[in-house]
Each structure stands twice: as C-alpha cells, then as structure tokens.
Design a protein around this nucleic acid. Structure first.
Lengths: 150, 150
DNA sequence: ATAGGGCTTCCCATTGTTGGAAGGTCAAGC
DNA sequence: GCTTGACCTTCCAACAATGGGAAGCCCTAT
C-alpha cells in the first residue's frame, strides 16, 4: 500500500508519516523500485497506535517511549502505567495553569461594566496588578505559560 | 534606560522586546547616537502590560488588540470585556480538551495492573480503541489537539 | 501517447522563545 | 591612553508539530 492509502487508513497525514520516518519515530518504510514507500497492515497498525497516542496528548518523544514498550514483549505493565500517569500529571498541571488564567480573567471581566465608557478593570489590572482583588482569585499565575490563544 | 534595564524592569526579556518591536507589536524604540535602544518609564509600563497579558495566556495577536484598546482613550469597556470573554471561552475549550485526555488516560491507567506482567490495557486501547469501556469515559477525544507533552 | 493524480524531495511558514556568533560601545581601572 | 568586561547591535538557527507548495518523476486509464 502506498503512503496515501496508509495515511487514509491510519488517520496520520502523509506529511506526518514522512516526518516520523525522518525523525526516527518509525523505521524507514520499504520502497518500490521507483522509490515509492510501501506500507503493510502492520505498519498501518503502528501508525494508528501513534495517532491514538497523539490524540491523548502525548508528544512525539512520549510516543517514542510508548512504542518501545509496545514492541517490547517482555515489558512490565508497571512501566507503561508509570508513563501514562506521568503524562496525566503533566496534563493536569497544564489544566491548572489554564484554569488559573481563565478564572482570573473571568473575575476581571465580571468587574467590568461592559458599557460604552472607557474605564475597565481588565485594562487596569493589566496596567498594574492587584487592583482588582475580588473573589478568591488573588493568586497570580506566575510562571510563563506555553499556552497562547490561536 | 537601555534594553537590559527595561527587560529587568518589565519582566520581558531583551530578546523578546526586540522581537515585539520587529513584529510591530510595539513601536520602534528611540536610539542613542551609537544605536542603542532607549526606553522610558512609559515604555516599561507598556512592556509590563504585555507581560501580564502574556501571563493570562493571550497570544501576541490578542495582545495587539488589547494594546489598541488600552491606547484608545475613547474605547468602550464593552469591547475590552468581549475580548477578555472570548479568550476565557477559548481557554475553557482547551481545558475541556485536556481534561478529556487526562480522564481517558486515567481510566486506562486504573485498569492497568502495573505489575511485572506485559499485558496492559493502556497499550491495548492504543492498539485499537473501545476495548476498555469502563467508567463514563467512552467519548473519544477526536479532533486533533494542539497540546502535547513537552 | 497523453492526461491526471499520486509520489518523491526540498524549502518555507507558523508561534513564541531562546541560543549563539561576530562585532560595536561604554564605563571602570590601571 | 589602553585594556577589560559587560553591555549592546544584527543576523542566523533551533525548538515541536504541522501544513503548504514547487519541481519533477511515476503509474494507470483512456
């Protein structure tokens, strides 16, 4: 099967399949005499595995670890579980960070009249912190975030 | 004040200050005869504004909108509020996505014995979905995520 | 044989940030 | 006056993961 069919069957784009091969996440595919990549059902199986791990928020590096365990017939499920739980912890950390931002901003927005006057506590708070100390949201979300709006 | 002092005072790195200038987020700074950038307290004020917006998860584009409103003395607070609430909605959307991943993975991890045997429902689920239908977490987190583990 | 769609590689863009190299500038000390 | 070291300048590259596109080869159906 060609790369297009493998992409369709696995849910991983052809672009990404080539990228995963290039970066060593997956072994180099076999080639036809003319240079076309050829994929087996086994390969598609692996690609689907990658796709699902990606859907669960694993990074390529994380997936690398999962694939190693997947292929290791003598693995210990404890190792898999640990990898998974570490990832869950990381997800929860990010969730908390985002939640902190959202609640802070929500508090500020609640304090904003939202009319045609220019005065707005949201801008005031951005100008200088600590002006709007309502709710329970006094904790500042320090520590730079890796989450930005798209 | 030089860029280093402005960086220190604002919490925005010198690198980023130059980047923000290059991309037009902030106006080009004044220069000394020898080419050094010079910043006023007002400039530092603006940089701090940017830093705080960044801490609240705003993208550079989002910050651009906020800065425009900040500088617009005839703004309507309703516009600021709308921008803020849109961002809150986006944050909550991302939170829900991450929460979905985390709970799915947690359910799988709970079903994993975590011992020295190789069989593991986490890997089984990654191989083929729907095998582990425990809890209430049957919904699949489709829609590709822009969140990966670092 | 020719058209079209699929494949190949290579390069570029994204977002926000950091790192480094090569070189100019400034202030302090000798 | 000169050296030294800390600072500044610009330019270039990299990260992670993905998409877009160009130039050119390949395969199949008509």
């Amino acid at each position: 099967m060609n790369i297009g069919a493998a992409a369709q069957a696995s849910g991983v784009s052809a672009k990404m399949i080539r990228y995963y091969e290039e970066t060593g996440l997956i072994p180099a595919a076999q080639r036809t005499a003319s240079g076309y990549r050829v994929y087996s059902e086994q390969d598609v199986h692996m690609l689907r595995f990658i796709r699902r791990a990606r859907d669960l928020g694993f990074s390529v590096e994380g997936i690398r670890g999962l694939l190693d365990l997947w292929r290791d017939q003598s693995r210990h499920s404890a190792d898999v579980k640990q990898l998974a739980l570490e990832h869950v912890a990381e997800l929860r950390r990010k969730i908390a960070e985002l939640e902190d931002m959202a609640s802070t901003l929500e508090t500020l927005a609640r304090a904003c009249h939202g009319n045609d006057r220019p005065d707005c506590p949201i801008l005031s708070e951005l100008e200088a912190p600590g002006k709007v100390e309502s709710d329970s949201t006094t904790r500042r979300s320090r520590s730079a975030s890796r989450f930005r709006a798209g």
